[in-house]
Amino acid sequence: MSDKKNIFERFGESQVWKSIFRSGVPRTRRQRMMSVLNSVFLHLHPVRLPRHAVKLKFTWCMGGLTFFLFLVLTISGILLMFYYRPTAEYAYTDMIDLGEQVPLGIMREIHRWGAHAMVITTWLHMFRVFMTGSYKPPREFNWSIGVLLLVLTLLLSFTGYLLPWDQLAMWAITVGGNMARATPFVGHEGPGAALLSIGDINFINMGADAKFALLGGRFVGEAALLRFYVLHCIGLPFVVMILMAVHFWRVRKDGGISGPT
């Protein structure tokens, strides 16, 4: 009998294959359910869904695309990190090299346009969730997590802005840093900062305020480049991943995708 089986079938029955994919090729209803349940990736999803939930006109797949773009940005970002050096001396020339000396010189393009696209998909996902009233009980908290994820998406994009070390970068961050300077109480040109002083000593001054903490100096320089690099590559993605885990977990725990009752 066994000689009638083709190579794929034989492979599918091998011990190796079966140890990885326990439920076999998803042909029967049971196998299909098990293949979702048994996969660490697929079990983000429930096994069964109401019919409206798989329709594109309901979900627009925007949440999924946002996550997908996050993965694309992570991978392309890691590839960029192999060549990019966050110093005032090299940052700009490394940018040029990334386009001209590195094979498949569109990685920076993928990263930059992907970042634009991710802001747009996050927007649209939020818009969809709002229009379908999906933030209503019991999903209130998950909406709030989502808002934080939107803010982090914008911050990730913003910190990435400095890294090319060109004029656009320089001045966008100068303006951003000077906004921090105006933070009430903790910025040295913000209202209330003058209250935090004893005699002539200002505790909040050019060398110690929110702007300084952000830039690592009194103006945008090499220290700021390094700080933004660390925030962009490690700090913010770390927070995003934690919040994303909460966000996905809560989608399931709050009763799965919203729908009419």
Binding site: G207, A208, F212, A213, G216, G217, R218, F219, G221
Partner: peptide
Amino acid sequence: ILRIFFPNVLFE
């Protein structure tokens, strides 16, 4: 930890 963000010497 917050203090880490304010170095003792600045190179400007």
